[in-house]
């Protein structure tokens, strides 16, 4: 078993403009992603998904600060406050950004986009880049004719597929895809998700998919982690987490998904996502949790769930402190 990504107690924060404080977006995360996994990171807005994903992709902004360790295939990429992504960024790990519209330059053709990325990562010349681009476009179901197009001449779905193709052409072993939250219909979503799933299965690309929609992970991912306020509150095989969710937050997420043809009331809990400034060790769901107890002012450990392989949950209610 080869680990593609291993995070050990990693924390990532952003220094406030006036340098008065640090917003800790990711707080002490331990996580292992095996090579060939399709791993999904789920969580609400502001929970730290993009921050964690950009750490893996080696594209944290300069005002980010880090603690802990991050390995990409045995290479120590983040060692406390030191970063070393040379040879990893773009080559081993490729990133598909959250927003295709603003991630492509309006002044460059699709072919240019490929060229500039492949020149920098793989030292390709024009010709080699063009060949790689055509192969990758084929895989994502786009015609080679789009090479001459500018981004605005493509639909949102086509732009997204171009970004996936660029990630593919660089022969990266890990693709990090930050899913768009923008208004795309089910057809487009399904086709992008299926495409990513196919790349994972057929080309053994390790996939990290970021999304706020827990339900849509099931068609692509074999493992998932639920993130809340910078912490992982539940993780396991997709099938065991979705069939047998443990954390009250995970359960609520599932209760909120509209299901077609099934008339059930949606049951959101009141309250809003919280932003974490102080790095207090409490349960991040405490204030919204219908099952909170006094103990929840302390941070619960991530404990295994029953006999389920690799299924862990971070909740005092489920770790035997108090039953029921």
């Amino acid at each position: 078993m080869v680990l593609a990504v291993r995070a050990g107690g990693i924390s990532i924060g952003y220094i406030d403009e006036e340098e008065e404080y640090i917003v800790w977006a990711v707080r002490g995360v331990d996580l292992a992603i095996e090579e060939g996994d399709a791993f999904c990171l789920v969580g609400e807005s502001g929970s730290g998904k993009t921050t964690f994903a950009s750490a893996i992709a080696g594209i944290l902004p300069p005002h980010a600060v880090t603690r802990g360790k991050l390995y990409i295939f045995d290479r120590l990429a983040i060692d406390e406050s030191t970063w070393n992504f040379n040879g990893l960024r773009g080559r081993v790990v490729s990133y598909i950004p959250q927003n295709p519209g603003t991630s492509l330059s309006p002044f460059l053709t699709v072919e240019d986009h490929f060229y500039y990325v492949l020149r920098d990562t793989l030292r390709y010349d024009r010709e080699k880049s063009r060949k790689a681009a055509m192969e990758a476009l084929l895989k994502v179901g786009l015609d080679r004719g789009v090479l001459e197009d500018y981004p605005h001449e493509l639909s949102g779905g086509m732009q997204q597929r171009v970004l996936i193709a660029i990630a593919l052409a660089s022969n990266a072993k890990i693709i990090v895809a930050d899913e768009p939250t923008s208004a795309i219909d089910a057809n487009l979503r399904a086709s992008v998700l299926q495409l990513l799933g196919r790349l994972n299965r057929e080309y053994r690309v390790t996939l990290l998919l970021v999304t706020h929609d827990l339900a849509s992970t099931s068609i692509v991912c074999n493992r998932l982690a639920v993130m809340l306020a910078g912490k992982i509150v539940e993780t396991g095989r997709t099938i065991s987490v979705l069939r047998n969710p443990q954390h009250p937050y995970t359960k609520m997420l599932l209760d909120c998904v509209p299901l077609l043809g099934v008339k059930k009331p949606l049951k959101p809990l009141p309250g809003e996502p919280i932003q974490v400034v102080e790095d207090k060790a409490i349960c991040p769901f405490r204030e919204r949790c219908p099952r909170a107890i006094d103990k929840c002012v302390e941070e619960p450990p991530l404990k295994p769930v029953g006999d389920e392989e690799n299924h862990y949950v971070k909740c005092w209610r489920l770790t035997g402190v108090e039953s029921g």
Binding site: A38, D185, A186, N187, R189, A190, S191, L193, Q194, G197, A215, S216, S218, I219, V220, C221, N222, R237, T238, I239, L242, R243, L254, V257, L259, L260, G261, V262
Partner: peptide
């Protein structure tokens, strides 16, 4: 038709157990 099919695929796990989940 295709919208409905896609939607059921995406949320397959919840709506009924008739759609295959990757394990």
């Amino acid at each position: 038709k295709s919208l409905i099919t896609s939607y059921l695929q995406i949320t397959g796990i919840n709506s009924l157990n008739n759609i295959k989940i990757r394990g």
